[in-house]
Nucleic acid binder design. Structure first.
Lengths: 194, 194, 194, 194
DNA sequence: CATGAATGAGAGTTCATTCAT
DNA sequence: CATGAATGAACTCTCATTCAT
């Protein structure tokens, strides 16, 4: 462990992320990354064989972070997940700008697409497990925990997308009612039993 | 007959859409558009002063189509909306690839971002009106029709995003259970009354 | 005489002159001329076969004006000539900006170069005739009237060049002393006789 | 040895000068410069950020050369200055074609214009100092040494302009009589005293 | 007469990439 | 390890010019 030069690589990746969000995928250049990192373009090529490789390593980094975050999330803490999601839901969300830029670029790069897809599957699975331990039984017969995970994740991403595009999107109100909805849902099972 | 050149502009826009999806936003070039349209690059510039203007007109075209689609949707037809959404939910969805590419590019172009945001607001509103006429009263107290529209739209986009990234995403199953969930939701009001 | 459409041609030439001075020779375009003249580019081509032809006609127009001016100048009126020269000597001189732009372009167009050269020869000749009628005999033996005309013309153009390049060029002072110099010169003949 | 690339920049500038004179300012392209220099266009852009910057550096080079020439000129050597001026006075004068092309382009570029203006001011000053040490006192009362410098410089540039435009311009004769005129002028002071 | 649509060659510029040092 | 010089292909965009109407 403790590679002194390993820093450089991940430092460059961090700079690349910032460049990607600042300039947008269409104007993302290695020169900009090099400038932000304070190195020459040659140095970039020393660490990454090609621009594409930097991209792939960047995506891998994001996937690793996601995985680590998922691992740290304890069960029964739906609130934690929702808070995290809400905090990333804004008009200027660095995270979602980065993510959606990568999604757009993934349409031409199967490796990136696969990595992002896998990350998403993991998130779905983690979410469904949280819900599973929260509810024990699905509040609605015919809707599996797997689907609940997918739906909730879709909502989180969908809301982020809406917030990114609408300056006046009612983030607070929507998340409040969304959480209320989840709570109510938790009580349905009982009612159905009656 | 009539106006042979009246077609040109919208024809070019159609070609531009295809190029955008085929090449991706990062490799989207006017040369490619010109080739696909069978005209010279100069012709593109005759009709659209700049690449950015072509982009803006392209987005406007999508917004107009969305608006027209919304206008044609009759009330009480939640099934129609869901079918349309589901049909656009796939690993190769032309529509969502195009949409998400534009979203990514909108981060650097406020005009595009505003247009897309407005389109989304209109879709939210249309959806909430459909639900409003379907349910009369919200199935869950504390969750407004406005929020239902937002949430359902978020789900549709979120699911499309998932399907785009995962080759084996269970589209059928998820939509089936999603529709089932909506139907069950429609019966909650009554139960709550008890 | 009185060609109603002859207007158009000379009007376009006037607009072309303005464009040439405003945009500079390197950015001089027929589109700009057309816009300034309020016509389409096609109309320019109706009147002038090519851009080069417009240029040649433009130069011809300037030469014609010069000739007319020379013809109107009466003898013995060195003051008139100097006043005219001085009035055209400034940092923003339309006339000399136009003239020098044409000179620069003449290096690649022998026809233009010949026309400008002929114009200059005529000016030299006119000036030497004025001086000849003013002095009767050359104030300095060994300097012909032809050379005086050339030298004075060179001074006029050289001063204009200096004024064009130096914002704070002392136009007033220089012309004052230049005129004084000419007057003193007129008295030399007599002194030499002594 | 040493700095093989230190040459590149000034080499490119030399090639640019030649291109400018050969093609004229309106057809001056970086492509042509690159070809003449035997490098790619990218190399040009590596050394000069833009075409404009190359232009500015080119002008600066000319100004530096002018300054160096002025510095090397010893006093009392009016002949040297006149010889140099005459040698540059011809129908094909590389120097004056280059200079006038830059003057024409300076109308749209204040930085170039300022540089050329300053160069001219320095030349004026140098010339007036030469005359001052040659004559001690102005041959004509009321005409300052500053003005003599300006007038002689104007003549030199004005004659060059005439020679550029007239294939049969009498360069020899004119310069001969011009030099004679200067010599005679030198004797006026004494005569006036009588 | 004049226009507007279209062209194609070529302009300036940028970029990912290479390589000697 | 890292750099800076160089490349060459590709990009956006402009322009003089043509031509059917």
């Amino acid at each position: 462990m403790a590679k002194p030069n390993g820093m450089s690589k991940s430092e460059i990746i961090q700079c690349a992320k910032e460049c990607l969000v600042e300039k947008g995928i269409e104007n993302f250049t290695l020169r900009a990354v090099a400038e932000k990192a304070g190195v020459t373009q040659g140095t970039i090529y020393y660490h990454f064989r090609t621009k594409e490789q930097l991209f792939i390593d960047l995506v891998q980094d994001i996937c690793d972070n996601s995985w680590q975050e998922i691992s740290q999330t304890r069960e029964n803490v739906i609130e934690q997940a929702l808070d995290s999601a809400k905090s990333r839901c804004s008009y200027d969300s660095f995270f979602h700008k980065l993510f959606l830029s990568l999604v757009a670029s993934s349409f031409n790069n199967e490796e990136i697409r696969r990595k992002l897809g896998e990350m998403m599957r993991n998130e779905n699975k983690a979410l469904s497990e949280i819900l599973s331990s929260l509810w024990v039984e699905s509040p609605i017969k015919g809707v599996s925990f797997e689907t609940w995970g997918i739906l909730f994740n879709a909502i989180v991403d969908g809301l982020a997308l809406q917030a990114l595009l609408q300056k006046d999107f009612p983030i607070e109100k929507t998340y409040e009612e969304f959480e209320h909805f989840i709570k109510e849902l938790s009580t349905f099972k009982g009612k159905e039993d009656n």
